[in-house]
């Protein structure tokens, strides 16, 4: 069923290969940026993918890109379809879809705050969402080091000390070898 939908859209929207490796009823497909809106509209209005499950990002920092994942659901056919869109990590500007799904504005506001991905035109996208008074880099980016942040912000409890079994045994049993 997913294959049939894919076949209908593939050529018109130059879709990438259909990735069905995960579970039954779920597929992912790579999407070119310029086709985001037409594909989403077609999927929603023609193919029955009326439910936007979620919109989120994955930071592939080593490839210098963000992946935006638009996860849609067709309830009648019990199909979940994930559209993957690449964004240049150094020019992280996405296209707002709040007019297609108003709830997308919330996701976009979060992505703006947590990943630093801009969505021009999305309502209240620059308002603080979860973080208030945050001045560091967007914290869900891969290069934000939570451990380092925690070590800078909080002190360790005093008196904590641990030993590695191997090193400890060497120290006691065969320090000279």
């Amino acid at each position: 069923m997913m294959q049939a939908i894919y076949d209908r859209l593939k050529d018109r929207f130059q879709l990438g290969a259909l990735d069905v490796r995960s579970r039954k009823g779920l597929a992912f497909v790579d999407l070119r940026r310029e086709f985001l809106r037409p594909v989403l509209t077609e999927l929603r209005d023609v193919e029955g993918f009326t439910h936007l499950i979620l919109l989120t990002a994955v930071d592939w920092i080593e490839d210098e890109r963000f992946q935006l994942t638009y996860l849609l659901n067709n309830r009648q056919k019990n199909l979940d379809l994930g559209l993957r869109l690449r964004l240049d990590r150094n020019l992280a500007i996405g296209e707002t879809i709040h007019d297609l799904w108003p709830t997308a504005a919330t996701y976009q506001r979060e992505l703006r705050e947590m990943f630093g991905i801009a969505f021009p035109g999305s309502p209240r996208v620059d308002e603080e969402f979860i973080l208030e008074g945050w001045t560091d880099m967007p914290p869900y980016r891969r290069d934000f080091d939570t451990l380092a942040y925690s070590q800078q912000t909080h002190a360790d409890r005093e008196g904590r000390e641990t030993s590695d079994p191997r090193e400890f045994m060497k120290q006691i049993l065969y320090p000279k070898d």
Partner: peptide, 8 residues
Amino acid sequence: DMVPVKDP
């Protein structure tokens, strides 16, 4: 934490 308790 792993702490010394007896001789290895």
